[in-house]
Design a binder for these strands. Structure first.
Lengths: 219, 219
DNA sequence: GCAAAAGTGTTGCCCCTACACCCATGT
DNA sequence: ACATGGGTGTAGGGGCAACACTTTTGC
């Protein structure tokens, strides 16, 4: 393999995260406004060019940190986007990830070296974005909906436990549909992902509800 | 983005295919022997560096053609491998695919510009390979097993129709386990993927079996 | 007539969906 | 007492796994 072969010189890898949260029952996604070219002034997903000395997730986490100040975000691989003209600067292949955080527990840097703003956008109000990021988000939302039905992604919202009605609200926000209370309980309890505690609390109603916790993951 | 930034200069994308076949009831994978460095003389999966003017699958198909002479192979995205040291030459991220063909219907080029040999290896006799290709194969086999249960990947074996016992043998070879005849028929017929014809033929036994065809895919 | 393969049905289990009533509490 | 939300059970459908006998035909 020849390092300077013009056929594959000037290629790079984008690592890109679709970071979601729930805000007042709405699924939102974190976007940053680009300070530099290409696509200066446009909103975009967090992410950027992978460095040579980083593994993929490592580079992604650095990019997330650099563009938002966020740390310790768990992400899951989503997809690959590699159309030959997806970047105007050079040939870039994007490896995309999804993540979800509790926006109320973190501070997002509004301005960084490379960004002039950062906002949570409702997923039905996403503007025209840099690169192919609109397409990446559409795919990421689909992945997110699948993922929450299989994994404990949503535990980030409940470090101190949760009631089932509380958890159900989050599921409903992401899936964008109402779920049957009885069926939801059965499904979740069957997933072997959460365990009841002895405590109870009041969520929205007047009646106490049992508090559950996500199981610690064993390796 | 600066094209010559040393932090992400000299990166590239590998497009890599795990191409399978079934030979005498055994799942086999196509490997080629590398003529050049790195990993000169080692066996490897088909694939190579993506060019700037190609989409991912396009580059993959060129690579498959260059290294085996094979054309018109349908592939499905499998995964991404991006550990920072996975290539000794420069920073490469691999986008991997799976495909399956009927080896008895094609001619594999034993020697090309870049390869000195090409062979089908039983998946339990795969030698130590170039790069991280052993790991890629392990993942690809898992993906293949999932994929044949959801798609019509196996139609390549039966351009002229097939009997159910015949198809079942192929499934059993790939899944590496025996299937119940009755359950297999029900499952396959329920998938809405195949249709019966009026013809019958003898497969292994003495009794005629009905011939089915894969449905043409409508878009 | 027997060996070898093709064809066929039923049952139980699990998961999913749909759906209605009682309970506890704060006002 | 009533409004609000928490908690519960049942029945039907679909997919999956387990399991045995009859049919055809070549020898």
């Amino acid at each position: 393999m020849e390092v300077n072969n013009p056929k594959y010189e000037h290629q790079g890898i984008h690592v890109i995260a679709s970071i979601f949260t729930i805000d007042k029952g709405k699924l939102k996604i974190l976007l940053v406004k680009r300070k530099n070219n290409p696509y200066q002034g446009l909103w975009a997903l967090t992410g950027g060019a992978l460095y040579n000395d980083e593994d993929l997730e490592e580079g992604l986490k650095r990019e997330i940190y650099e563009k938002t100040g966020l740390e310790n975000i768990e992400v899951k691989l989503a997809n690959v986007f590699g159309k030959k003209n997806r970047s105007p600067v050079m040939r870039m292949v994007a490896v995309t990830y999804i993540g979800i955080i509790d926006a109320s527990k973190v501070e997002i840097a509004k301005s960084t070296l490379k960004t002039s703003n950062a906002e949570w956008f409702s997923i039905d109000e996403v503007p025209h974005l840099a690169y192919d990021h609109n397409e990446i988000i559409t795919d990421a939302i689909k992945k997110l909906k699948e993922e929450i039905l299989k994994t404990d992604l949503l535990k980030v919202f409940f470090p101190n436990g949760f009631t089932l009605p509380e958890l159900q609200k989050v599921y409903e926000s992401i899936l964008e549909k109402k779920l049957d209370r009885r069926n939801f309980r059965k499904k979740i309890l069957n997933m072997d992902m959460i365990i009841p505690t002895e405590e109870e609390k009041i969520f929205e109603g007047k009646k106490k509800a049992k508090i559950y916790k996500f199981k610690e993951k064993e390796e």
